[in-house]
Amino acid sequence: MVDAALIQQCADPALKPAIVETFIERAGSQDPLTVAVRSGNRVVLVPRPSTPDEAMELVRQHVGRNIVRVGITQYPAGVDVAEAGELKPDLVDACANLRIGTALFAKVHRIVTKWYGNPTDKEVLPQVFDDAIIAWQTGYFDGTAVFQAPDPAEVKLTEPTPEGEGETAEQRGDHTAAGDSDSGRETANTDPKKAGIRIDLSGIAREK
């Protein structure tokens, strides 16, 4: 489990600590040097880095050609840069990764929350959070590329009830979180800003 003091110090204040903890548990990593690489639905095996420099070298080798997730939050490397040379070592720094990762997830959560009509019903909130997690993992919600989408900043995020008290989006058979099946498979682009995030959720489960 990520240290509570680190969450308090570094996580985006828009998310309550309990939300951050659950987000990392379900979609992140305990190791700030974790680099996960995928090509379409295929996991690309890469050596496990032992230093920040090795981790960043892995990221630079694959970003723009494959889908790369980095660090504690499994941040989608390349979404905010034009080329690999612009990537910063912050990606593999625990505090910096937590800061940028939770800020981006907060935006994704707001997008999903707005789609649901900004609900406050405790029975609906777990569904909203489940769909936000899937949107983070796939990069899409209801056909929208969530990492590049505008931020509905007026939406206030509400803490969901503990995991297990509500059905997940997958259990409900709700496919809106992943969006259209074709849009979720957008071919990797040399421009990281336009690259889709394509994640095989079953593969994520095995890695965890």
Rank of each mutant, 00 (worst) to 15 (best):
V70W: 10
K208G: 14
P52Y: 11
C10Q: 02
D3E: 14
P150M: 11
G64D: 04
E25V: 03
Q148L: 00
D142I: 05
G173F: 13
G78W: 00
V70Y: 08
A135Q: 11
S202C: 07
I24A: 04
V63N: 11
E170N: 01
V128L: 10
G101M: 03
V128S: 02
D191M: 02
V79G: 01
Q74P: 05
G203T: 14
R38V: 12
T187G: 06
E170K: 08
L15W: 12
K16A: 14
Q137T: 09
N118H: 02
P192F: 06
Q127I: 12
P47Q: 14
I67K: 01
T113V: 09
A106S: 12
E83R: 14
D90P: 01
E21V: 12
A5Q: 14
D53C: 07
L104P: 00
S181E: 10
G179K: 02
R60V: 12
G40E: 06
T113I: 07
A188P: 15
K156V: 13
N189V: 13
D80F: 07
V92S: 03
R60S: 11
N66D: 15
V146I: 01
D180A: 07
G28K: 14
V35N: 12
T187D: 12
V59Q: 03
Y140I: 09
K122W: 06
R60E: 14
N189Y: 05
C10M: 02
K156F: 07
A145L: 07
A149V: 07
L87F: 10
L104G: 10
G196Q: 02
R65L: 13
D174C: 05
A36S: 13
E57C: 04
I111R: 00
A84I: 14
G101P: 07
N66V: 03
N189W: 05
R65W: 08
N41E: 15
P150C: 07
T138K: 00
H109R: 02
L125Y: 12
E170M: 08
T190H: 13
R42K: 06
I24P: 05
E83L: 08
K114H: 10
I19Q: 09
E186P: 00
D53K: 12
I67R: 01
G117E: 14
D130E: 13
Y116M: 09
D12V: 03
D131S: 15
Q148Y: 00
E25Y: 08
A145I: 01
N97L: 11
G101S: 05
E165H: 01
K114E: 15
A149I: 13
T113F: 09
Q8T: 14
A84F: 07
T22K: 08
L15C: 05
W115R: 06
S202E: 13
T51M: 09
D3I: 10
